[in-house]
């Protein structure tokens, strides 16, 4: 496979994953703004921070209202991570790797682009927001379904999955990073209603508010949630789950190509820091430090993969 094609697949799936993540963040922010009117501004601000677009946003707006944040994150073409931008970038990459995709996957991506371009052609009114966000998530699921249902399990699939999980790990880590103080076990707000709302937002941001309950953790605690998001391998958006997927897809590639690269070791090293670990020891290490290091490592891993598999020149 061409290095460029591997890169195209990787980025196409990173971007697709990003659209879904942005939709979830907005959904969680929207929810909290609905239920708590007092602190809406700081919630929207943390949504912007989590999306990693603070600088661009601040250059354009000087307040954090729902209208502005939603518009910037969904439609603004000057924001390279807006759903509009990212969907376009995903489709450009899909065009680039068209010959590596099944008809079903290509058509799903193309349809996603057509649907979302039309959906986001005009500013989204608040009453339409839930259904728009829902469509974004559905489109993402459509592409994923086509990928799982029609693609051969070969290097093409591996690079697609690696892109997905690098993006997802980064996203979950950012959510924890921005809200880490609400997840510390010893804050003075323990048990307060503030915590409950914050925790629920965090869980919603990774679509885990229901699964958390199913898993029997009826009592929400800071460490319970942190443990769930970081270490629980049953949760498809936990750091642990993401890194184990990356490790195994990189292993498939090593097997397929008969060659191990620096990225294999790097991924395993990241994984080893999460394996056989309990949340208490992470708190002891310092949650903030831990997450900061994780974000840095996952980004280095991404770069190592790009260079090991010759995505660029």
């Amino acid at each position: 496979m061409l290095g460029k094609t591997a890169g195209g697949l990787y980025w196409m799936f990173r971007y697709l994953e990003r659209t879904e993540n942005i939709a979830r963040l907005i959904e969680a922010g929207f929810r909290i703004a609905l239920t708590r009117s007092t602190d809406a501004e700081s919630e929207w601000k943390s949504v912007v921070t989590t999306s990693g677009v603070s600088a661009g946003y601040a250059a354009k707006y000087d307040n954090y209202t729902a209208t502005n944040v939603v518009d910037y994150l969904l439609r603004d073409t000057s924001n390279p991570s807006s759903v509009t931008s990212v969907t376009g970038a995903a489709r450009d990459n899909a065009r680039l790797v068209r010959t590596a995709l099944t008809t079903e996957v290509w058509e799903a991506v193309n349809e996603t682009w057509m649907t979302l371009t039309e959906l986001l052609a005009n500013p989204v009114r608040e009453t339409e927001l839930p259904s728009v966000l829902n469509t974004i998530r559905q489109q993402s699921a459509l592409v994923r379904g086509a990928l799982h249902g029609t693609m051969l399990r070969n290097d093409i699939y591996d690079f697609s999955r690696i892109g997905t999980f690098i993006e997802r790990a980064d996203n979950t880590a950012r959510i924890i990073d921005v809200k880490y103080y609400t997840l510390l076990p010893n804050t003075s707000f323990v048990g307060s209603s503030l915590d409950n709302v914050q925790w629920e937002t965090v869980l919603r941001s990774v679509s885990a508010h229901r699964s958390f309950r199913w898993l029997g953790e009826s009592e929400m605690t800071a460490s319970g949630i942190a443990d769930f998001l970081i270490l629980d391998r049953r949760l498809p958006r936990s750091l642990s789950f993401c890194i184990s997927q990356i490790v195994s897809n990189l292993d498939y590639l090593a097997e397929d190509y008969g060659e191990r690269h620096a990225c294999n070791d790097m991924a395993e090293k990241i994984q080893s820091r999460l394996k056989n670990r309990d949340i208490e020891s992470i708190f002891d290490e310092g949650l903030h430090e831990f997450i900061t290091a994780f974000i840095r490592d996952i980004n280095s891993l991404g770069q190592q993969i790009e260079s090991d598999f010759r995505f660029g020149g």
């Binding site: 061409l2 290095g3 460029k4 068209r98 010959t99 190509y257 598999f309 010759r310 020149g313």
Partner: peptide
């Protein structure tokens, strides 16, 4: 393969494309 100019270079007297395996 569908290639662009920057995927290609001269290698051992031939034109070669940059793949994930060299």
């Amino acid at each position: 393969e569908l290639v662009e100019g920057h995927d290609l270079r001269v290698v051992d007297g031939h034109i070669a494309m940059r793949t994930t395996q060299g």
